[in-house]
Amino acid sequence: MSGAVSETKRGWRLTGLEALLGLTAVVVIGQRWLVDSFTSPALQTGATIFVSIFVQALPFLVLGVLLSAAIAAFVPPTLLARALPRNRSAAVPVAGACGILLPGCECASVPVAGSLMARGVAPAAALTFLLSAPAINPIVLVSTFVAFPGQPQMVLARLVASFATAVIMGWLWLRFGRPEWLRMPSRTHLQGSTSWHTFRLTATHDFVHAGGFLVIGALAAAVFNVAMPPQWIDAMSANPLLAILAMATLAVLLSICSEADAFVASSFTSFSLTARLAFLVVGPMVDLKLISMQTGVFGRAFAVRFAPTTFVVAVVLSILVGGWLLT
């Protein structure tokens, strides 16, 4: 696969597609050998968990991508800029609340936040939106509701803790942020010739972005599930504070799309609800793929300050809200 990747990098247009066809042919021809070598129960179990997470998350991802593409194509961005209050401190919670209305996973919200800034929305408000949109939009809340049957308080806790984290981060940026840390992004390449064209370009773009990272998350979760001795997980989950930090760190490492993370969180049944809440609050705001995307869109000076601060604020808010709503 790595050979194919480097080929697409320097090759001309069709090389990538040819690599894809070649790879498919190799897999089809090698099918017998692959099936025969696929007998270890640990490997089978890991593979089942891997594809299960992927299959379960897929419809949510498709729905999110279609909605975010529809918004990118059919809602004029100036409308959003005009809707915000002039006062910047007041604009922050309003932008955070707008996150509820604009569904999409974190991979889509990074460029949206960038284009909001480019259209004159105050950076603090755009950053609050960046954090809140993937964490508290309806698709994420519905999937959280589905993933935690009989525990609707989890949905409320996630909404409250995520919203509070996003707003606090916006206000922190107003108070301490410096314009030179930010680099202004552009997203012109997704402007199609018609709205429908823009819709398709955005949907395809957002799907391959989010989908690739979903695969990483599902794979990591499957490896974690199979390779980690059950006692080891229990040992981490026994200490309440350690459990919360472990789940928050795991959220950063797994980098799961926010539309699917509730299903993964609910599978860590030995952890307290507060620890799993930390996973759900941190995940959509700070994870490896977000840090790299933020570095790309807003610059490194921004990412090295923004990501760790968000992590700390999110963990603290999870502990507070978890203690309030989940005990």
Partner: peptide, 9 residues
């Protein structure tokens, strides 16, 4: 490039 990973599942 991570889009290639979609081929894994």
């Amino acid at each position: 490039r991570t889009a290639w990973l979609l081929l894994l599942p």
